[in-house]
């Protein structure tokens, strides 16, 4: 059982992580690199708009507004960019293996309580993780492009951790304590961090255009939804395989 928790968590994390790496490369990395051009000053958000009279002259702004050529950032520093991607993608695997291990541990308890390892349940486990880890904290701390000033990092990290823990507990209550009191407690746990409020700057600002940030948030959630769905589905598949009625010697199985 112990080995199964680790093995299933590891493999589900690797499966989901592989897809997250691909989606990060296709969806979010281009926007991160573009945002860094605004951060470094290579691009300027209001370029051309500062002079009166050109505000509505779209021709004059074309250069600044044109979307970047695909891979424009990549040519600048080929090798260091490859190294940067390699590290980021390794980190994706580390994060998703970590989520996989946590989910696997919780699923082992759920199975012990009689929950089936159907793909439907797997998808629900994944969606519960998506809500707990992405949606709940994201309501207060939206996914951020580089170059956007934000409140004190430590305060945000603490709020993020507390919110994820509360939301995960709420998911557990919804799943296993299916009575009005449990559901009310779950809703309270979901709401509480937002009643307290996430650390937030009084005045928001940012070097990149709001539209770029909006695009980024949408894509970040798409990546997360794909990753968590796949994590839950592969978790159910892996635990289902283990639960197949194979003749297993009963004693001393727990190595």
């Amino acid at each position: 059982m112990t080995m199964r928790i680790f093995a299933n968590g590891l493999f589900a994390g690797l499966i989901a992580g592989a897809v997250v790496v691909l989606l990060q490369f296709l969806l979010t990395e281009p926007l991160i690199l573009e945002a860094e051009e605004y951060e470094s000053g290579a691009r300027v958000h209001f370029a051309g708009l500062a002079e009166p009279g050109v505000l509505h002259d779209h021709g004059a702004n074309e250069a600044a507004d044109a979307p970047p050529a695909p891979g424009a950032g990549k040519e600048e520093a080929g090798e260091s960019l490859a190294a940067r991607f390699a590290l980021a993608f390794a980190a994706d695997f580390v994060v998703y293996v970590a989520w996989g291990l946590i989910l696997s541990a919780l699923v082992s308890v759920a199975i012990a309580r009689g929950q089936e390892t159907s793909l439907q349940n797997g998808l629900l486990w994944g969606l519960a993780g998506f809500v707990a880890v992405q949606v709940a904290p994201g309501v207060g701390l939206a996914p951020e492009l580089p170059g956007i000033p934000a409140a004190d990092l430590q305060a945000r990290q603490i709020w993020w951790i507390a919110t994820v823990l509360a939301a995960a507990a709420a998911m557990g209550l919804f799943a296993f304590v299916r009575n009005p009191a449990g559901i009310a407690a779950g809703i309270a746990l979901l709401a509480l961090p937002h009643l307290i409020g996430a650390p937030r700057l009084e005045q928001l600002a940012g070097l990149a255009p709001p539209s770029l940030a909006a695009e980024y948030v949408a894509r970040s959630y798409a990546v997360a939804l794909a990753g968590w769905s796949l994590l839950g589905l592969s978790m159910a598949w892996l635990w289902g395989r283990a639960a197949d009625p194979v003749p297993v010697p009963v004693p001393a199985d727990d190595r």
């Binding site: 991160i32 980190a91 580390v94 994060v95 996914p143 951020e144 990092l153 990290q157 990546v223």
Partner: peptide, 14 residues
């Protein structure tokens, strides 16, 4: 090392 991952996966980063 984890910078782009933290941004993509929405961990508080900077």
């Amino acid at each position: 090392a984890a910078h782009d991952t933290r941004h993509t996966l929405a961990f508080p980063c900077h």
